[in-house]
Amino acid sequence: MNTTNSQTSSYSDYWKRPHFIKRAWLRWLLMVGFAIYLALALGTMDIDWERAWEGLPRGQRFIQAFFPPNFADNRGVVFDGIMESIWMAISATIFGIILSIPIGLGAARNLSPAWVYFLCRGIIASSRSFPEIIMAIFAVKLFGFGPFAGFVALSIGTIGFFAKLLAEDIEVMNASQAEAVKVTGSSWFQWINYAIQPQVMPRMIGLAMYRLDINFRESAVIGIVGGGGIGATLNTSFSRYEFDTTAAILIIIIVIVMVLEYISGYLRKWVQ
């Protein structure tokens, strides 16, 4: 025992994990800053607890409406709304992607001259500038109530999403493969077709499905501002206190999103 003691006493028995941020002042600054922010944020939150408390029975009623949800009443309206949402999402995805392809190619630094690059990047940036719902508000102002406004808003959103990712994908693709095709003296279109398309295609199909998914989910709220689709029906059922219909609509939305997700997972495996 004695010998072990004398052997081990030379080693420290203190160890502390090194901090992630090594500079102490920076660490404290960040921590204190975050704490102050949290305190301020929570402190300035104007919450009417009494109103929230009173609302709990309403919440209970709302949840009860799910058991059972009412698929029967308003069946026609709900079906129409859902179909409108689906078609809106599909057409906005297709149209948006068709527009995205030239814009995406133009926004890839390794393909395009500077002026095209900046033009296309500008289009992408402005179509990403506002949430789809704000786009939809203005589309409704311009085109009147109905799915066309939603279609326009979702198409713009699709361009911002798809063209950006397409451009980024082209920028990081394998340059040597692209070069190899270029030196054969092919035309620009042939070059795109043989060198670029095979490299980016699988991912793009996956992204298209993903965007379809997003567009469908967005189409469910665009109706709230008058842009057509299931959102209008949802909003109406809600303001009429027909919660069992609301529940039915929510369940349908969830099921459709699940199906879309399943299909896109399957499709992605299939194209790769």
Binding site: Q7, T8, Y11, S12, D13, Y14, W15, K16, R17, P18
Partner: peptide, 26 residues
């Protein structure tokens, strides 16, 4: 919380020293 007993920490240093990795502990 990484609050290991003192003996464990001492032993860890001893072993690291034994295999020549003392300077790499952190």
């Amino acid at each position: 919380l990484r609050k290991f007993p003192k003996d464990d920490i001492r032993e860890a240093y001893r072993l690291l020293d034994r295999v020549g990795m003392m300077h790499m502990a952190d």
